[in-house]
Amino acid sequence: MHEPVISMRNIIKRYYIGKPNELQILTGISLDVEKGEFLAIVGQSGSGKSTLMNMIGALDRPTEGSYFLNGVDTGTLDDTELSRIRNQEIGFVFQTFNLISRTNALKNVEMPMMYAGIPRKERVKRAKELLEIVDMSDRADHQPNELSGGQKQRVAIARAMANHPSILLADEPTGALDSKTGRMIMDLFHKLHKEEGTTIVLITHSPELAQECDRIVTISDGSIISDTGVRQNAAD
């Protein structure tokens, strides 16, 4: 049976529920993402795209609505099971890289595999392969503070790919980088998309970056105002 990777139905997120300052961030989002898509979620600051990302990444639960990830209703899962989802199904790439300090690149890449309980030998081997893919093999034993922004982000991408996640979830991955390095990171995403067939959800406020993706979903005031649907990549 055909099943989308992400299937969101009428997701609503409210904060300060029952208080005078109650705030509705997402006002009813429905979104399907198919396997192998390269999707951009675009929106202004405060549009709710980061909250949506947290939902997709199983870091947060919706107040209302349902979210199926690979057919699993995440609303029925407890904290431990959500940890497992984040570990196995989601690969996060953050704007500020979020590498763990005082821990070298190789160990950073190993970390998701460590939490997955993969034996040390095996995960070192895989981490080295991943660093090879992002062209960071020669920096495996460097600490994060010895790496440039672009290098950090490449390590972060390798780390995100560690457990073969269903989705690579990138939140403004080039936001903290200069345009040249940003370009390199975007090229890396394209490479992973083409060569590994990774499903990528890119959250950005930049329309130019969004134009490179197969599909653009635009969010404003907590709801989807446009969705291009799957189309041929403009860059092709």
Binding site: G57, T80, R84, N98, I100, P112, Y115, A116
Partner: peptide
């Protein structure tokens, strides 16, 4: 705190 957040995003369970 930030490190804890990162670890949790990477799939660390509370017990870990």
């Amino acid at each position: 705190t930030k490190e804890i957040g990162i670890r949790k995003a990477l799939g660390a369970q509370n017990a870990a």
